[in-house]
Structures are given as structure tokens and as C-alpha cells.
């Protein structure tokens, strides 16, 4: 009985802190942006790398992401999601834009091979964070494969719900339900991870 209440209080407190942070960013406080960067840049790079498989491009995406966060700070709404989710949604969107515009030339393919080695993430996390990540990864593996697949197609490959339905030959409603169920399960892990 007490745990959901504590989680709700924690979520509200986090949202309020994020709102304050973004208000400072919107007021052109570069120090606030640096705080946001320290909190999210590594995750943003991870998302961009996962989508692009190219470190140089992924770093460009991180730069673009924080510049866009700087410009769009006043649009942040803490009720819709955390500051981290806001930044990561921009990073994902920018990375997918690059992926779509990338020309599949021989040069690009060749560079992909070269960058693959360089894009191996460096360990920057504490032991505690690593434990959290491993726990999330384990939880992700407990999701039914079809739910996990829907999330990966949507989030990392940028497919729309209709494209996912076409690719998996599933009804649109099924795709929606799988995405909702999967995200609700993952959402429950966030409080524990924080």
C-alpha cells in the first residue's frame, strides 16, 4: 500500500525538479544545460550509437540534441515525461533523421565497418548504475519477445505503428496493445532503478 504512494510522491518531486531545471534552461542558463548534459548526454549517446552505429555521427547527434533542448526548453512539460525522456526523444529523433538521410554508398558502408570498433562504449558508469542497467536488461528479457520486438522496431528503427503491423503481419490494435503493455512493465522498473 505504501510503495505506490511513495513512488507517486517521488515521481511528482522528480517532475517538479525537471520543470525547474528546464525553466532555467529556457531562461538561457548555460549552467542548467550543463547539469542536464551531465545527466543525459551518456544515455543520448547510447541511443544514437544504437541507431547509427557510428560514433562520430552519434556525437554530432548529441550536440544537436542539446542545442535543440536549449531552443525548445520552454516546450518541456514535466507531466508528460521526465527531463531525461525529453532529451532522449530528441536524440532518437535526430539519430533517425540521420539514418534516413544516410546514403548507402560504399564509403558509408566502409566507414560503418571502421567505426564499429571505435564505437564500443567506454565504461563510465558506477558499479551501482551498472547493476541497475543489468537489472533493466534482465527485465527487458522477461518481456514477451513480440512485445520487445514492437518496442525495438518503433524506438530504434523508427517504424510507425502501421509499418510495424505490416512487417509483423499483426493487426494494428495488437501492435498498440503490445507497445502499451511493454512500456507499462518497463515504467514500473523506473522507480526501482532511480
Amino acid at each position: 500500500m505504501l510503495l505506490p504512494l511513495l513512488l507517486a510522491i517521488l515521481a511528482r518531486a522528480t517532475a517538479a525538479a525537471d520543470d525547474t531545471l528546464f525553466r532555467r534552461v529556457a531562461a538561457r542558463d548555460a549552467q542548467a544545460l550543463r547539469i542536464l548534459y551531465d545527466r543525459c548526454a551518456g544515455l543520448a549517446l547510447g541511443v544514437a550509437l544504437r541507431i547509427l552505429h557510428n560514433r562520430s555521427e552519434a556525437e554530432d547527434v548529441v550536440q544537436e540534441t542539446f542545442l535543440e533542448s536549449w531552443k525548445r526548453a520552454e516546450t518541456f512539460d514535466g507531466q508528460r515525461g521526465s527531463a531525461t525522456a525529453f532529451v532522449l526523444s530528441i536524440a532518437r529523433s535526430r539519430a533517425l533523421d540521420r539514418l534516413r538521410s544516410r546514403v548507402t554508398s560504399d564509403k558509408a558502408l566502409a566507414s560503418l565497418g571502421r567505426e564499429a570498433e571505435a564505437s564500443v562504449p567506454l565504461p563510465i558508469e558506477t558499479a551501482e548504475h551498472r547493476q541497475d542497467r543489468e537489472r533493466i536488461q534482465a527485465a527487458l528479457l522477461t518481456l514477451p519477445p513480440e512485445q520487445r520486438q514492437v518496442l525495438e522496431l518503433a524506438y530504434f528503427e523508427g517504424l510507425t505503428q502501421r509499418e510495424i503491423a505490416d512487417r509483423l503481419s499483426d493487426p494494428l490494435g495488437t501492435v498498440k496493445t503490445r507497445a502499451r503493455l511493454a512500456l507499462e512493465k518497463l515504467s514500473a522498473l523506473l522507480g526501482e532503478a532511480q
Partner: peptide, 25 residues
């Protein structure tokens, strides 16, 4: 929507974070 956004954040957190060079900042 908030629950779904949190779920997406967890999905991103499942990825290995990477160190960023200071020149990016």
C-alpha cells in the same frame, strides 16, 4: 502518457552508456 514515457526512458537506460569527450560539450 507519463507511464509510457517512463517506459521509453527505461528502454534507453537498458543500453550501455558511452563516455563523451569534453569537446562535445
Amino acid at each position: 502518457l507519463r507511464r509510457a514515457a517512463d517506459g521509453v526512458e527505461v528502454l534507453a537506460r537498458s543500453l550501455s552508456p558511452a563516455r563523451l569527450d569534453e569537446r562535445v560539450w
